[in-house]
Amino acid sequence: QNEKLANELKSLLDELNVNELATGSLNTYYKRTIKISGQKAMYALKSKDFKKMSEAKYQLQKIYNEIDEA
């Protein structure tokens, strides 16, 4: 289960640069939040902690959705 979550989180991290570029014309909230979420996700992957990875995955998905809707 950890392996599956780690792969999903890696996949979301692969999209980080594209989504970060998409924040160029948006409010600074999005820029700041996506950077923080990305850092948390990288830390969670290194720690291999299921709870941290779950939270990081949720945060990344949430900010990606917010950027898409903005």
Rank of each mutant, 00 (worst) to 15 (best):
S25A: 10
K46V: 08
I67G: 01
V18G: 08
A41F: 03
A22P: 05
N19Y: 15
K35R: 11
L5A: 02
L45C: 04
L5K: 01
Q59D: 11
D14V: 06
N17A: 14
L16W: 10
A44N: 00
N17E: 14
T28Y: 13
Y30R: 03
N7E: 12
L45N: 00
E15N: 11
L60P: 00
L16K: 02
L26P: 02
K4N: 09
K62F: 05
D49A: 02
L9E: 00
F50C: 07
G24H: 15
Y43K: 12
Q61C: 11
L5S: 01
L60Q: 01
E66D: 05
K62G: 03
K57S: 04
T23K: 05
S37Y: 15
S37A: 15
L16I: 08
L13I: 08
I63P: 00
F50T: 08
A44V: 02
E15R: 14
E55C: 08
N27W: 05
L5Q: 02
S11D: 10
I63Y: 01
Q39M: 12
L45R: 00
N19S: 08
L21R: 08
Y64E: 01
K31W: 09
L60T: 00
L26I: 04
K31G: 06
A6T: 07
L9M: 01
L26F: 04
Y43S: 14
Q59E: 12
M42R: 13
K40L: 13
A22H: 07
A6V: 11
L13N: 00
K46Q: 13
E69Y: 11
K35A: 08
K48L: 12
S47T: 13
N65C: 13
G24T: 12
L16V: 03
T33R: 14
Q59N: 09
A56G: 02
E8G: 02
S54Q: 14
A44W: 01
T33D: 02
Y64F: 11
T23C: 10
D49V: 03
A41T: 01
Y58H: 10
A22E: 05
M42S: 05
I34A: 02
I36T: 06
G38P: 00
S11L: 12
E66T: 04
G24P: 04
T23G: 05
A70G: 04
I63L: 08
L16H: 02
L21S: 06
M53D: 00
K52C: 10
S54T: 13
K51Y: 08
K48F: 09
I34W: 03
Q61E: 10
L13V: 03
L60N: 00
K46Y: 07
L5N: 00
K51D: 07
D14L: 11
E69W: 12
L45I: 06
K31Q: 13
K10S: 05
A56K: 02
L21D: 06
T23M: 07
L26R: 03
S54R: 10
S25Y: 07
N7C: 14
S47A: 07
D14I: 06
A6P: 03
L12W: 03
S25F: 10
A22F: 07
V18R: 14
R32A: 09
E55F: 06
V18F: 11
L26E: 06
K10T: 04
Y30E: 03
E3H: 06
N27D: 11
K46S: 07
Y30G: 01
K31H: 06
D68V: 14
S11N: 11
K4T: 07
T33G: 07
L45H: 03
E69I: 11
Q59C: 14
K31I: 06
A6D: 02
T23S: 08
K48C: 11
F50H: 09
S54M: 14
K31F: 07
F50A: 07
L21Q: 10
K57Q: 04
S37K: 08
A70K: 08
N17M: 14
E3T: 09
A70T: 04
F50Y: 12
N65D: 10
I36F: 08
N17T: 13
Q59P: 00
K51G: 08
S54W: 10
Y58M: 10
G38V: 15
K51T: 10
T33N: 09
E8W: 04
L26Y: 04
K40A: 11
Y64L: 14
S25E: 08
G38D: 00
F50L: 06
T33L: 15
E20D: 07
D49Q: 03
L5Y: 02
T33Q: 15
E20A: 13
S25I: 07
Y64I: 14
E15M: 15
Y58P: 01
K51S: 08
S54C: 13
K51W: 09
S37P: 01
N2Y: 15
A41S: 02
N27T: 11
N19H: 15
E69Q: 14
A6C: 10
G38C: 15
K52T: 07
E55W: 09
T28I: 13
N65I: 08
K48M: 14
N65R: 15
K52I: 08
M53T: 00
N27S: 15
T23W: 09
N17V: 13
Y58Q: 10
Y29D: 03
I67P: 01
S37G: 05
D68M: 15
Q61V: 06
Q1T: 10
T28K: 12
I63F: 02
N19R: 15
G38R: 14
N65W: 12
N17I: 13
D68H: 15
K10E: 06
Y64V: 07
A44S: 03
N27R: 06
Y64R: 07
F50Q: 06
A56D: 00
D14K: 10
K48S: 04
K10H: 05
N65F: 09
N27V: 05
E8K: 04
N19T: 06
Q39F: 09
Q61W: 05
N2F: 15
E8M: 05
L13F: 02
Q61L: 11
Y64C: 06
L13P: 00
L26M: 09
L21I: 12
Q61N: 05
K10R: 12
A6G: 03
Q39S: 07
D49C: 06
K62M: 07
R32E: 14
I63C: 04
R32L: 12
